[in-house]
Amino acid sequence: MARHPGGPTVDGVVMARVVVTGGAGKLGRACVRDLVDHGWDVVVFDRARPESPTAGVTYLPVDLTDYGQVIDAMLGVEERYHQVDALVHLAAVPAPGLVPDHHTFSNNMLSSWNVISAARRAGVLNIVWASSETVLGLPFDVPPPYAPVDEEYPPRPNSTYSLVKTLEERMAVELCRWDPELKMIGLRFSNVMEPADYQRFPAFDDDPRLRKWNLWGYIDARDGAQAVRLALASDLTGTEVFIVANADTVMRRSSASLLAEVFPDVEVRGELGEHETLLSIDKARRMLGFDPQHSWRDEV
């Protein structure tokens, strides 16, 4: 039977089970904790294991480039679980330039195809995956078409990593065309941060060009986890992509002054708040109810 639950509900209903790939990573750890806190039964597929595993979570060392392992684990593991209701796919080589380009492409593209294909064959219709802010044209050596940037202009991949993310978004469109009941939500995460990372933020003010590559954006891992949970709970069908960033920038300077100095010829659309993000989260707010709760300004 195809399963497309929006997640845990009420009145003693058995909680839904979600596979989180890459659950040992920075964003993955936050997502796992958040989903458990909100009643999900979580299974993690990751070759690594976090130093502090979350209680009650099933951790499986799955090589996502091996389809046999992926489909086997997606269909259930004896004495541990027997079905999967949803998928959150976060696992990947996480940025450009970390490994040779061919490895980035082959690992990330094959892993995504294996995991999504296995989920569909297991009857899963509720899929959320990590796309990336990089599809917006990062590192913005060519200025963005306007600011704040949003989901309205076509992807502009400038790296092998970003190319894969763009292809994943296109793949999702076609898979949802094949199956109108399928839901695939791509979250274009900004640069993921944890509270320990915030101590270095004040130094960014010394040179605004140091962080121009992503329009001074970031996403607190806890707020990234919120976006994942809301995407799972959404009753949307088909493919949607959302920019997921925090509501402010990494800078103490105003957003308007940053654009005026670094991107003086870029059209500014609308009125900007003093530190308002230049990676627009309006769509995520409107359609998912996304509401960032954490700011580096509260930690430093």
Rank of each mutant, 00 (worst) to 15 (best):
G23E: 09
A233R: 12
V173N: 09
L230R: 06
P148G: 10
R229K: 12
P155W: 02
W178I: 14
V14W: 01
K183E: 05
G7M: 11
G56Q: 00
P195R: 13
G25T: 07
A231F: 14
A48N: 14
H275M: 03
V32K: 05
M1A: 12
A245I: 05
A91S: 10
T104M: 00
E299A: 08
F105T: 04
P139I: 11
E261A: 12
G97N: 04
D63M: 11
E152T: 15
P144F: 10
S190K: 06
V42T: 09
T21H: 10
E151G: 06
P264E: 00
V42L: 11
L64I: 05
S117L: 12
N114Q: 07
I243S: 05
L27V: 09
V99Y: 02
G68M: 02
A16K: 06
E194D: 09
W213V: 00
G7C: 12
W129A: 10
D220E: 05
S112D: 00
L182N: 10
V44W: 08
E152R: 15
I127F: 06
V44K: 07
W40I: 04
V77S: 12
L279E: 05
F140S: 01
L258N: 05
L259F: 08
D282K: 05
S112L: 00
G238V: 06
E133F: 11
D150S: 03
R222W: 08
G56D: 00
V244I: 15
D298C: 02
S162A: 15
A147N: 02
L87P: 11
T104D: 00
E276I: 02
A247Q: 13
L258S: 06
L175C: 01
M184A: 07
R222G: 02
L182R: 07
E194K: 07
S132D: 06
P180T: 13
I243F: 14
A30V: 10
L230C: 09
V20L: 09
D150G: 03
E133T: 04
W216R: 09
E51L: 13
T237A: 13
L279K: 04
A91V: 05
D72L: 05
R170W: 15
P53Y: 01
A196S: 12
S132C: 06
E174S: 14
R200K: 10
M184F: 00
Y67C: 03
L232G: 04
P155N: 14
A247G: 07
L125K: 15
M1N: 08
F189W: 12
G224C: 07
